[in-house]
């Protein structure tokens, strides 16, 4: 059998978001998305994701940056640190943590979809020869990541697997730990691909100091409309997703 996750989630649950399941969707037009991927070292490959998930070989970290010029919360930026994984046979990305520069957006994303978010200053700058993103928390850069030498591609060549977010589900006054599957739909307007670049990355600041990027993989930049759909699947984090997945919505 493939390697199975063995992440100890007990500590993570203490400050995990509490989610109330609803039919809420979030639609945001004109989102710029930077995705930069790096292979990680193998030393903790099984310990990086919960038991419900299988790590990929090699493990890959994705830095996923959204910058929305307009939304129901006003402008906001969101940066996620995610790990490639499998839920049963399906490609997924386990959310390690995220940063957001809008308290209103952070509250909505956390409460409805289980984004583990803390506030940060986020700068995404697009040039003709590169795209740069900087995340600053407590006056320190905790991530400097980017794309070099963009060249146009079709957006359909880019894959953003659904996220798996560790949260507590509010269930009539009690809470249960669950992985929330976060599905998003993308309507691409333009897309580029380039070389990945990573300046600063402080893994401890993102919640897991075992995340050591070792090998560049890819970088893409896209402009698109994004819909985060209502939550349809949740998953018991302690048992394999093929056994512990529950359908909680429809679309």
């Amino acid at each position: 059998m493939p390697l199975a996750g063995s992440l100890d989630i007990r500590g993570l649950l203490e400050d995990a978001p509490t989610v109330t399941l609803t039919d809420r969707e979030l639609h945001v037009n004109g989102v710029d998305i930077l995705q930069v991927m790096y292979e990680l070292g193998f030393s903790a490959v099984e310990a990086l994701v919960p038991a419900a998930l299988n790590p990929t070989i090699p493990p890959v970290v994705g830095f996923l940056v959204y910058q929305a010029a307009e939304s129901e919360f006003g402008p906001f930026s969101l940066v996620q640190v995610r790990l490639t994984a499998r839920a049963g046979v399906r490609p997924r990305a386990y959310l390690v943590s995220a940063c957001c520069d809008s308290p209103a957006a952070a509250e909505a994303l956390s409460g409805s979809w289980g984004y583990r978010i803390r506030p940060a200053e986020i700068r995404l700058r697009r040039f003709h020869d590169r795209v740069d993103c900087t995340v600053i928390s407590n006056r320190q850069a905790i991530l400097e990541v980017g794309l070099v030498d963009p060249t146009p591609i079709t957006g359909h060549d880019i894959q953003y697997p659904p996220g798996m977010h560790l949260a507590r589900i509010d269930d009539e006054g009690t809470t249960r730990p669950r992985l929330i599957q976060v599905d998003s739909e993308y309507e691409f307007r333009r897309a580029d691909r380039g070389r990945p670049g990573l300046g600063t990355f402080n893994p401890a600041a993102w919640g897991d100091d075992r995340l050591i990027p070792v090998e560049p993989v890819s970088a893409s930049f896209a402009s698109c409309d994004v819909t985060i759909t209502n939550v349809r699947y949740i998953c018991n984090p302690d048992i394999p997703a093929s056994e512990g997945t529950q359908n909680v919505g429809s679309k």
Binding site: P2, M37, N54, T56, I57, P58, V60, T84, R86, G88, V89, R90, P91, I153, T154, D157, I158, Q159, P161, A191, R193, V217, S218, S220
Partner: peptide, 18 residues
């Protein structure tokens, strides 16, 4: 076979390429 094959990390999954 299907389960193990599905665990493989395809090139397309991490690198946008036609």
């Amino acid at each position: 076979f299907s389960y193990m094959a599905s665990q493989l990390l395809s090139a397309k999954e991490v690198l946008p390429t036609n």
